[in-house]
Every structure is written in C-alpha cells, then in structure tokens.
C-alpha cells in the first residue's frame, strides 16, 4: 500500500511539474543562458567564425547580421521542432537545409526591399547564414528531439550567444579601426581629434586578434579547457 501511495505521489508530482512549468522555468532559462557564456557557439564551440570575421568591421551591419541570425535560428528551430515527428530521418539534413535556406532568402529579400544599403553592405554574408554551422548544428542537436517552445528558446539563446560576440568584436574593430561607434566619430566627440586608427583592425586579422582575446578572457574566467 505504501508503494502505491508513493507511486501516486510521484505521478501527481510529475503532473504538477508539467502543469506548473512556466514559460521561462529554470530549466528553460538554461537554454538561453548557457550559450551566452559557458557553451557559447563562437568562443567555446568555435562555430560560425567565418561570418564573425567578415561582417564585424562596423557595428551597424553587425547588428543587422545579428538580428538576421536570431530570426533565422528561432524560426528554423521552431519549424524543425514542429515537424520533428514527420521529417523522414534519411533526408533530415536536406529538410533542415531547405528550411534554413528559405528563411535566409526571406531575410535577404526583406533587407533588399527595406534596407538596401545594408543589403549592399552585407551582400553575400546574409546568404552565408545558410552555411553557418551554428544554425544547422542546433537543428540537428536540439530541435529534432525537443518540443517547439524549448527549441525556440534554444535557438534564441544560441543566436544571442553568437550575436553578443560578433557585436563585441565589431565594437572594438570599429572603435580602433575607424574611431567610430555606429558610424559616429566618438573620439572627435570627446575632443581627441587625431586618434590614430589602426588599419589592422579593419582587416580580418583584427577580428582574429579580438576574438582570441575574448576567448582568452572567457576561458580564464570559466576555466574551460579544450580536451
């Protein structure tokens, strides 16, 4: 009899847990928090480096890129998660690719219509979101096996992890390479007229250096070691 009640209790507990899990429960918050630092797609998993180097010379295009990636990741994770029981296993990679490519083309078309300058500036790199390993990595590793809302959070978290890194890189590259912040000459504004800008920062090499420094600082703090 005693076992019976325990089982009952457990069932009730499970039921309650299911009912009471809020939209942003602790478990779900982890989906967003983890990729920001401990499991960052760029600095820890070292994915998506190509675009992190290419688009980060200025803040503005980087922000556009970040928003595009967030959009693509959230919605591709959502659609794949919704379809996860329907997608034939043997063609799942192609299905993922098709979904991502469609979303990216949508982003590209919208940019072309509403922000042509950005479209010109980012040009090929918006299209290259398709090949960004982070997007497909999350679909394969997470969305295929998890519920839609969890997947949305996971996509959002990872995209945010990607975004803050590229924005940080862009911040330093634009500041040191062009002496500007979002196109505003900050050094002139605070009275330093002849700030010596560093041409190295404008080239991809500058992105490598800053990315390396960010990874260094982060790993010193988290104690993460590559095995």
């Amino acid at each position: 009899m005693s076992t019976d009640t325990i089982e009952k209790q457990q069932v009730e507990e499970v039921k309650e847990k299911k009912k009471s899990e809020t939209l942003l429960s602790k478990r779900r918050k982890k989906f967003i928090n983890d990729p920001l630092n401990d499991d960052n797609p760029i600095t820890v998993q070292v994915l998506g480096i190509c675009s992190a180097l290419a688009v980060t010379t200025q803040m503005k295009p980087t922000l556009t890129m970040a928003i595009s990636v967030i959009f693509v990741m959230v919605f591709s994770n959502l659609s794949i998660s919704l379809l996860r029981n329907l997608i034939p296993t043997r063609v799942r990679i192609i299905v993922q690719l098709a979904v991502i490519a469609t979303l990216v083309s949508l982003v590209s078309e919208v940019l072309k219509a509403y922000s042509y300058d950005m479209y010109k500036e980012l040009s090929v790199f918006v299209g290259l979101i398709i090949t960004n390993c982070i997007v497909m990595g999350r679909l394969e590793a997470f969305a295929l096996g998890n519920k839609p809302w969890d997947s949305v959070l996971d996509g959002f978290g990872n995209a945010l992890g990607y975004s803050w890194i590229i924005l940080a890189v862009a911040f330093f590259r634009e500041l040191l390479g062009a002496g500007k912040f979002f196109g505003v000459p900050v050094f002139e504004a605070i009275g330093i007229a002849n700030f010596p800008t560093n041409g190295l920062m404008v080239t991809p090499v500058g992105a490598f250096i800053i990315l390396g420094l960010i990874i260094w600082v982060q790993r010193t703090k988290t104690g993460y070691v590559e095995h």
């Binding site: 078309e109 072309k112 219509a113 509403y114 042509y116």
Partner: peptide, 10 residues
C-alpha cells in the same frame, strides 16, 4: 510581394 519595394530601393 516585395518586388515593387525592392525596385524603388534600387
């Protein structure tokens, strides 16, 4: 849907 807007942008 976006074509007219894109044309204008260009």
């Amino acid at each position: 849907f976006l074509k007219p807007k894109q044309k204008k942008s260009i």
